[in-house]
């Protein structure tokens, strides 16, 4: 038996619905159809009246979740694609994000954001928007890469009293598997994890590029290069301590994301290390992102748009030759 990343997301929602009567799911095609990616399959049947189809109204989906959360509910909003959250942007950043600071009352909503590219998905079904939302105060930004994190972080997102944006990567839905879901776990939002220990260089990543980083590390291992790979897990709050600790061990930093290059998570990580750990560095801190264009449709263009395993390995060799 094994469980996929997608099944973990469904299992976390089922567990939350089962254990907390205030949890409900609201989104486009989430009820009878079970969601565009089937991440709510059968939940409407198992939990009548608590998995509801919404109109195509991202603004109202988020707005209604805010109102419901003020009445004690724990809404889970499914954006069909993270890209469409642009239509709910105002409610997310200005209404939900600012609620606690402005009013002293928290707004516990979870917004699931199916993110990132797949071959052929094109400009409007591929975006990685975690950096955009992380810029705004009051939003917790989760970016799980593993099956275990997809499960435990989603449960934590629902339990947290603040608005959480849960950036689940679509490329990972059916491609990563685990033996089973964790039964005992403690909440750990905001904590990064050393996914692969190493000596020579630190790669900080999250989401799908964690796997590209691990593949590059495996390739470089054959050349005698030992790479430490840090999985951010939650990009806001960001675990600066774990990153600095790793850079202190290796002396080199490369941060990798599928998001766009201007600003964003990789720029934030590099800035923090340059500012607080400059003395730890033996080479200039570097970062890799997708290219600064819309995400292209053709699979070959798409592959060339984002950091590849080969490009990551090449970059690391250059950094160590510096």
């Amino acid at each position: 038996m094994s469980v996929t990343y997608l099944e973990a997301i469904r299992a976390a929602q089922a567990k939350a619905l089962r254990e907390n009567p205030n949890v409900y799911i609201y989104g486009q095609d989430v009820a009878t159809y079970g969601g565009a990616f089937k991440s709510t399959k059968n939940l409407a049947k198992d939990f009548p009246g608590r998995v509801l189809d919404s109109p195509i109204s991202e603004d109202a989906m988020v707005g209604s979740a805010i109102g419901a959360s003020l009445e004690g509910m724990r809404p889970i909003v499914e954006m069909q694609f993270a890209d469409f959250s642009a239509n709910g942007f105002n409610q997310i950043v200005n209404h939900a994000g600012g609620y606690f600071y402005r009013t002293g009352v928290s707004c516990p909503i979870t917004i699931r954001m199916p993110s990132g590219g797949n071959p052929g998905s094109g400009p409007f079904h591929s975006q990685c928007l975690e950096s955009v939302y992380a810029h705004f105060p009051g939003l917790i930004i989760m970016t799980p890469a593993t099956v275990e994190d997809a499960y435990t972080l989603l449960l934590e997102a629902i339990a947290i009293d603040d608005p959480v944006l849960f950036f689940e990567h679509k490329f990972l839905y059916n491609r990563v598997k685990a033996e089973k879901l964790p039964e005992h776990f403690s909440f750990s939002a905001g904590k990064a994890r050393i996914h692969r220990p190493g000596r020579d260089l630190t790669v900080v990543s999250y989401g799908v590029t964690l796997y590209d980083s691990l593949a590059a590390a495996a390739e470089l291992e054959k050349e005698g290069i030992s790479i430490e790979v840090v999985d951010l897990r939650t990009v806001k709050p960001i675990d600066t301590e774990t990153i600095l600790h790793s850079v202190a061990n290796t002396g080199h930093l490369l941060c990798i994301s599928e998001g766009w290059p201007w600003g964003g998570v990789t720029a934030e990580v590099v800035a923090r290390v340059a500012s607080k750990g400059f003395h730890l560095l033996d080479s200039p801190p570097e970062r890799m992102n997708s290219r600064d264009t819309p995400v292209p449709y053709h699979p070959d263009l798409w592959l060339a748009h984002k950091p590849s395993i080969g490009a990551i390995a090449k970059k690391i060799r250059e950094m160590l030759d510096w």
Binding site: Y24, D59, G63, S64, A65, G67, L70, E71, G98
Partner: peptide, 28 residues
Amino acid sequence: RERIYPMISHLGALVSVVAGALMARRMQ
């Protein structure tokens, strides 16, 4: 907490928030 909701400057944003609160009451 007393069900007087503070507006944000972006007009129309409060309509769905009030609606969501009413949905919640009904679910409860």
